[in-house]
Amino acid sequence: MIEVNPIIIIFAAIFTSNMIFSNFLGMCSFIAVSKEIPTAIGLGISVTMVMTVTTILNYIIYWTVLVRFNLEYLMFIIFILIIAAFVQLLEMVLERYLPTLYYSLGIFLPLITVNCAILGISLFMVTRQYNFMQTLGYAVGSGIGWLLAITAMAGIRSRLNEKSIPEGLRGTPITLIITGIMALAFVGFSGMVQIQ
């Protein structure tokens, strides 16, 4: 276990170890929902929320149940179960109380279940042996980092709309290229703090 202040982990997770720009996790919804800023922010907030809550739940279950019974190998299946159930719950709540956001997220809300960034956080928290506060900081920071990345991408893409782009590069390809360039820019933050 490394001794890093949770507050520093939050900043590190946003900038130096951004889920998208340094790990390239959670790409499918990042590319699919980054067309309009409001929807992107909505999904970003949902992802942050799911990430934070599921990581806390996973942390508790991992250390109190799985480790106690020597069942660490079950973590993949249990983590996915928890994430899936929580997303279901979130879907019901949004459908009932925030229908506008529910409808604008559409099919991507259930797809949060298979957003690998969320499972990634839970797995990193185990391999890096974070304590509870560090885990919380890491989850919140990664969520905000993901929100920041998708919002920035949506901003760029909404400006790209009227620009002439070669036909073969329109849509996903140009998004991937921009992601690559943004990732290079984020390399500038590397070395500031070490969290792994």
Binding site: I61, F69, L71, L74, I78, L81
Partner: peptide
């Protein structure tokens, strides 16, 4: 224990 824990959860 695996079966028990997975079933419980």
């Amino acid at each position: 224990t695996t079966i028990f824990i997975v079933t419980c959860i």
